[in-house]
Write a protein that binds this DNA or RNA. Structure first.
Length: 465
DNA sequence: CTATGGCACGGATT
DNA sequence: AATCCGTGCCATAG
């Protein structure tokens, strides 16, 4: 009862704790909504305008020091620079001088999806089709699917449905192949169609996509084979083809290689919550870890509001006091969230440096429990902070943050290497043997599971290289 | 007989 | 408390 340890900051109230927990588990996109809601509902909370760094023209952190331009003072190159990035858009930082940036805020490196697609098909559009294309492209959701039906478009623009369909087909065949479809199934079918022109597509793939999507997404290949009346191996082959070549959410294809180990319809990550890159893109520089805060500016308790408190009648005073209380609580919670994220990423990047730079083979097995011990926070804190978030690596790949804790990713990639380099198909037990020579003792049965996860066929169905 | 997948159990992780 | 993961045992296919 007397072991009150004053950690540098904030005594914890229950409300405080609860809210911090909630905030911690939010992704940057969700956080944005949360903050906006809070701002709208609470007049005591204020967002002060963003300040730009004179050198790189990026919004400044609340400290007023540009976190990137002020060259980090880290002695050791091993140590990453972790900071909360106040950006609402994200680009890799570079040392460009102010002239490169006009006064207006940094413009996107990439077009947004509608523009991107429109540019591709613009040349092929007949004059009358432009409006249709524009209308369709403005009705896409984040996944690249149409949020309206072709009939509605036709009715709205007073053109035949067939014309709308024609334009839609052009859109579907533009770069994120499959955009403008109604659902994943349709998108995949278009992708198959386009792919057919370059490679041979297993004919089973069509059947799987049109009839067995639900089974495929749950990896129930056995049931799938039964349903389609095809052999296990051919189904497996086709399924592998699908996961390797197709993307059920074409709108997200934009953001790099996000294929999850085996999931076609699993969660695919769109915007990263955290970006890891080299300072100024130079590999000799230390790593920079940016934790995305979806607001440009600084959140604070409105001083005017505080002042107004003194000059008001007693009955409204209670409400205002309440607002003020809530506002400052919210800010504290947000700060704590950021603080935790920062500490977490620092340790994580230190530890998994090799994984980040050199690939999955070098992932060190690590658990959330261990991390929580090191940081002296509760396990659930880490769990919440990790779940649902995604990280963009220097290679521009986006991976789930939870992959930093994947117990078997490294073994699986080594296994893949063995199989890629094998001269004759190796059986699972032989592979298990090889792995244990490398210091990974796994059971034969486990090798089989890993194979399945990676969508690799059993030995007797593989042909030697 | 060998290689592999299914099911289920127990311990670890969340 | 719920879930995930590695593993052993057994059935089945080749």
């Amino acid at each position: 009862m007397f072991q009150v340890q004053f950690h540098t900051t904030r005594p914890a109230t229950t409300a405080h704790l609860a809210q911090t927990m909630t905030l911690l588990s939010l992704t940057s996109a969700e956080l944005q909504q949360q903050i906006e809601a809070e701002l709208a509902s609470n007049p005591a909370l204020e967002l002060v305008e963003k300040h730009h760094c004179p050198v790189c023209h990026r919004p400044l952190a609340s400290s007023g020091i540009c976190p990137i331009c002020s060259r980090p003072t880290t002695e050791s190159m091993e140590e990453p620079v972790v900071f909360i990035s106040p950006r609402d858009d994200f680009y890799t930082h570079s040392d460009r001088s102010a002239e490169d940036f006009p006064d207006e805020p940094i413009s996107p490196v990439f077009d947004d999806l509608p523009t991107y697609v429109l540019k591709q098909i613009a040349a092929d559009l007949a004059p009358g089709q432009r409006a249709i294309a524009a209308y369709l492209l403005t009705h896409l959701d984040d996944d690249g699917f149409l949020t309206t039906s072709l009939f509605e478009v036709a009715r709205y623009l007073h053109v035949p449905v067939a014309q709308v369909e024609a334009v839609r087909q052009m859109i579907q065949r533009a770069d994120p192949v499959g955009v403008g479809s109604d659902n994943p199934r349709e998108a995949l079918l278009v992708q198959l169609d386009v792919l057919q022109e370059q490679k041979t597509v297993p004919d089973l793939a069509w059947k799987i996509v049109s009839e067995g999507m639900d089974l495929l997404s749950r990896h129930q290949l056995g049931d799938l084979a039964k349903k389609l009346d095809a052999s296990q191996s051919r189904v497996q082959q086709a399924a592998r083809f699908i996961t390797e070549n197709l993307n059920p959410f074409p709108g997200r294809a934009h953001w790099g290689d996000v294929r999850q180990p085996s999931g076609a319809a699993e969660q695919v990550y769109h915007q990263p919550d955290i970006i890891i890159s080299h300072l100024n893109g130079d590999e000799n520089n230390p790593l920079v870890v940016e934790i995305i805060m979806p607001l440009a500016g600084m959140l604070r308790v409105n001083p005017m509001y505080k002042q107004a408190l003194t000059q008001t009648t007693a009955d409204t005073r209670e409400n205002m006091r309440n607002d003020l209380e809530k506002a400052s609580l919210f800010i504290k919670c947000l700060q704590q969230r950021n603080h935790t994220m920062q500490r977490m990423m620092f340790r994580l990047v230190m530890l998994q440096r090799d994984y980040i730079l050199r690939g999955e083979k070098h992932l060190k097995p690590f658990t959330r429990a261990r991390l929580s011990e090191e940081l002296e926070v509760h396990e659930s804190t880490i769990s919440r902070a990790v779940s649902g978030k995604s990280v963009q690596l220097p290679s521009r790949r986006i991976v789930p943050l939870s992959s930093f804790f994947d117990r078997s990713l490294n073994v699986r990639t080594i296994l893949k290497n063995f199989i890629n380099e094998e001269t004759r198909p190796l059986s699972d037990s032989e592979l298990a043997e090889l792995l244990s020579e490398q210091g990974f003792s796994v059971a034969r049965r486990t090798v089989a599971k890993y194979r399945a996860m990676e969508g690799i066929l059993p030995a007797h169905l593989r042909h030697a290289n």
